[in-house]
Design a protein around this nucleic acid. Structure first.
Lengths: 201, 201
DNA sequence: CACCATTTATCACACCCGTGATACGTTAAC
DNA sequence: GTTAACGTATCACGGGTGTGATAAATGGTG
């Protein structure tokens, strides 16, 4: 059966299985045996591509961070140049929604990222990735606000970052009360306030 | 040795030990054996006061929710009546800071609450408490904004709720970049925007 | 075909977990 | 003093985990 498999593909397949487990059972649900079962592999195979448990988690964290980086890079801050008023709000909203759980795919990624961030509090493996993701988000937001001519883009970026974290936490949790619609709405309200663009009535 | 112990005191002692473990190792670190050791008791004693693992977690969650409720009840919304401008911002800030990790005690409680909320995504035991806490916070904020004459207190409360969640998540995590000072500052900025009170320069 | 490296598959070990059952000592009431 | 309830302390079981070591099977290469 060892049909000259591409090791990178295999690793991706395993990491994806780990993601599914995080979504389904949370970070503690990610065990080597469960990951192997979820990926349709034997535990021996998984351990052939990953040194051990810690290594797998580190790889998954790295992948998660890269996905978030890719999402953020998709809408570079320079693209916001020249926008103002209603258009600025809309453009900024689209940027921020890249990392909010407004659809299935983004929801799954948001779950993984949030579990990772909280776990980074007690598991050193996750700390670097968590810090990098926070820094990346802050930087993108800061640049975007600067391009839009916002005074104090640093403080503004901190506000939006906090809002993103809170909205995500509320949306992925079964408080239930916060669906994608209300997430969008709350985000838009905050951005309007921040950019000084009154709501269109 | 069974010197007629007050069962309630014992249960509190055990739950406190569970809290310390959540802070130190996260939710998965709360095992019966570790809790017993942390409380300075034998596992048999712990199991004498709690049906089992699930029961202990439920009790801890309940206690956590009640503590948050007490914190919120300490500054009732009616106390904000008549405030406006700078005073309104200050009063609202004090209220919200009750549930933010701005000192050691509140930080520990915030850690427990956040771990609980995220865990509620996959553990039904926590769901009711998590939902209740979110509802309580929203209600207090809504009333406060209503008393302060804010138009759309519901939407405003959602914004502050999200901000609280995000600030907490960032502050208890070793992103490090967000100390109590910046938490206060970011909160104040957001409240000023929300209440329409420009920053005193 | 034979050979070797890669891949897959198992086994065994030690550890931690929750839980049921049970024994032991202490305390209070009768 | 006797008795019953309470609190404490252990034992054993089954299950899950990470990990080390090792065997088996396969595919390409010489």
């Amino acid at each position: 059966m060892p049909a000259r498999i591409d090791p990178e593909r295999r690793r991706e397949l395993v990491v994806d299985a780990a993601f599914r487990l995080v979504v389904a059972e949370g970070m503690p649900g990610v065990s080597l045996r469960k990951v192997a079962a979820e990926a349709g592999l034997n535990i021996g195979s998984v351990r052939h591509y990953f040194e051990g448990h810690e290594d797998l988690l580190a790889a998954a964290a790295r992948e998660s961070g890269e996905r978030m980086g890719r999402r953020l890079a998709r809408h570079p801050a320079e693209g916001l140049a020249g926008f103002s008023g209603e258009f600025a709000v809309e453009a900024l909203r689209e940027l921020v929604e890249q990392v909010l759980p407004v659809d299935g795919e983004r929801r799954a990624e948001a779950v993984v990222v949030t579990e990772l961030i909280l776990a980074s509090r007690t598991r050193p493996v996750f700390a670097p990735v968590a810090a990098q993701m926070a820094a990346d988000l802050h930087e993108v937001l800061r640049e975007a606000l600067a391009v839009l001519g916002h005074p104090g883009p640093d403080a503004g970026a901190r506000q939006i970052s906090a809002l993103v974290g809170g909205l995500t936490l509320d949306a992925i949790t079964p408080h239930g009360a916060l669906g994608p619609g209300q997430v969008r709405e709350t985000l838009e309200d905050a951005l309007r306030l921040l950019l000084g663009v009154p709501r269109q009535s």
